[in-house]
Design a protein around this nucleic acid. Sequence first.
DNA 1: GATGAATGAGCGTTCATTCAT
DNA 2: GATGAATGAACGCTCATTCAT
Lengths: 212, 212, 212, 212
Amino acid sequence: MSDMMDTLRNEKNMTPKQIDILRAAVELIAEKGYYNTSTSEIADRAGVAEGTIFRHYRTKKDLLVAIVTPVISNFSAPLFAEQFVAQVFREAYATFKELLYAFIKNRFEFAQSNVPLIRILLQELAFHPEIQTVYKQQFSEKVYPALNQAIDFYKQKGELKDMPNETIIRTIVSTILGFMMTRFMLKPDQNWDDEAEIKQTIDIMMDGLGKV
Amino acid sequence: MSDMMDTLRNEKNMTPKQIDILRAAVELIAEKGYYNTSTSEIADRAGVAEGTIFRHYRTKKDLLVAIVTPVISNFSAPLFAEQFVAQVFREAYATFKELLYAFIKNRFEFAQSNVPLIRILLQELAFHPEIQTVYKQQFSEKVYPALNQAIDFYKQKGELKDMPNETIIRTIVSTILGFMMTRFMLKPDQNWDDEAEIKQTIDIMMDGLGKV
Amino acid sequence: MSDMMDTLRNEKNMTPKQIDILRAAVELIAEKGYYNTSTSEIADRAGVAEGTIFRHYRTKKDLLVAIVTPVISNFSAPLFAEQFVAQVFREAYATFKELLYAFIKNRFEFAQSNVPLIRILLQELAFHPEIQTVYKQQFSEKVYPALNQAIDFYKQKGELKDMPNETIIRTIVSTILGFMMTRFMLKPDQNWDDEAEIKQTIDIMMDGLGKV
Amino acid sequence: MSDMMDTLRNEKNMTPKQIDILRAAVELIAEKGYYNTSTSEIADRAGVAEGTIFRHYRTKKDLLVAIVTPVISNFSAPLFAEQFVAQVFREAYATFKELLYAFIKNRFEFAQSNVPLIRILLQELAFHPEIQTVYKQQFSEKVYPALNQAIDFYKQKGELKDMPNETIIRTIVSTILGFMMTRFMLKPDQNWDDEAEIKQTIDIMMDGLGKV
DNA sequence: GATGAATGAGCGTTCATTCAT
DNA sequence: GATGAATGAACGCTCATTCAT
């Protein structure tokens, strides 16, 4: 949980009450959804007067955006900018499989620490243009180009089948998202051998997408 | 659209007004979400008095359930009961790949005719226990057992890798859902060669899940 | 009071509750001002649920406009269009003084029956652009042109001093308004000999503005 | 503007911040009215913390009273006490017309320098008993008696018609107020020949009220 | 003296639901 | 069966005021 608040604390200085508000809002919205959570409930759980919420966030929607924006940024952070692409080209990963493994491990841990945040993102994305804007920009400007370059690179090395990058990306994203949603949201209480499951999932993807 | 109303008309006899209400509700809820759609808006668009809605549906929630329940039933209908499993055992499909193809083609067409309904299901599932109950029951009692039996069958025939059925199912469902959501909801306006895309997707799944 | 409601009922069909709401709103706003009157108070006094107000008036401001607009129209109604000017030219009034007398008598009675409405108009005009718009349009398109034509007419007949029409109008309006506000708002409880006071006021204006 | 602050600075010693607060409050309240101006806005414009306002004025209403009271005092100051009446009896003004001219010139200049303050007084008088009390006391104890004595004096000299003093006062006040409100508030941007307009207005009053 | 975070009562408004017609 | 006026609880939000620093 403290981990989760780190994701949100990307901002400069927050008062303790502001942190309480964020934490309460995340808990309630993750559990019941944005429209089923009233600002008075959030204030109650945060141990704060309702007006205090609006001192820190102009509107309830602003509060939601303050929760969701850092998740979008952080989730795709590893793909950012030169860092990621540079590593690929510097051959930091011997194979695409190794890259995939490193990537999934890293994002798996992030997801694990931020389940409520990611749940909110997934649940509310459909309803709030404000979030969609942030998401689309992040995806089209950061995530997609980075993945695209990496895939081109490994295609040239002959490691990936000759099919549209978009299909490859869609398959990878669907598979990873499907795994993580099952793992953390649908059946979090099942006994999971995470390491085995990740490896299994990567094997499937590599067999499906990789060249023999 | 008439197709979509067929999906909903599974019920007994509906008056024309009731159909108008359902159609209006589907359009509005698909576009703006359940909580952003008021019953007065629905009544307006349906050309009906607000009270009339409550003559047919006790509550607004009931109306939502009336929309979503048939989608859940119909989407998994082909997997229902003996029919599907019987066909598998009767070797109606020469290979798992053929089964997959038949299944996806069929569900693709259903999805195409019911985009707004499916959008509503996916968007609202997270927020309404009433829907979750229906969904879980349908999945655990119908979908999962059917898929399970089929997968066991093809495993014995040596067509599928030796991995947990749950992993196989999760991969298939994720990949198909990822494809259909991209196709119909995220990028519906892109130029799609549906037949090629479906075949491509099946090839990936077969390479990933199938035995060489 | 029933007279006052006539002024407001210019609209088509109003339900009894809507009339109750208007009456309550007029009473409270006249007494305490728009910003000191809450919609819940209005609902209470009208014997109506608060929501009922918003069924008839989209916003609180709309309610105010519904009160004030008819007052503006009705107060200047006698000056409207051809009727008034035509009468002047047809020499329905032998002298300017007679015209003034007829006009003041008539408006005096209107004011007497609509004190709360006029109080609201005068009090709120300064704060609500919505009202100002209606007022300015009415004054510049109806009131001012009518007075202007009438004054020109009596100037040519040699009954009025040669001074700018605007000065004449300002003097007349100030004097009449000053009288009526004193009579009905500042000292309504003083013993007034209305007929004498009106005649006196007209004499003053005629001596001040008329040619010897 | 510095002139306007002089009107308000009648009080003891004011810190620079207090002056900033007053100035900001006057600007905002004159423009938007008391109820449309929040203390936080005033603090913002004054460059002061919100709490600072309440260090100098116990309540927001106190702040309003601090603005409006000096206007009331100053506007009627020339009529104050013995000074004015003594001058009249000492025959400092040859005629009532001269008195009127001196009075109007003087008050015109005061009004010109204090438009925002007077606007606030006129706009808010109706809504705040605290202001009404100050106003009534000032008028009934200072303004009215002074005017009354002066009018009696000139009546005895045969310069004024024989009509109730109250009617005379009402006419004068209405005419002057009507002129000044038109000049400074309704049409401040029109081209005005102030000297001519004042003389014209006095001529009208004298013809209307004076004996031939 | 000055600050500004915190308060909480109160506001205007929405909307699912009821019910007399 | 259908209507739509009426309801009232609940909501997001504002703002004058307080008080620890």
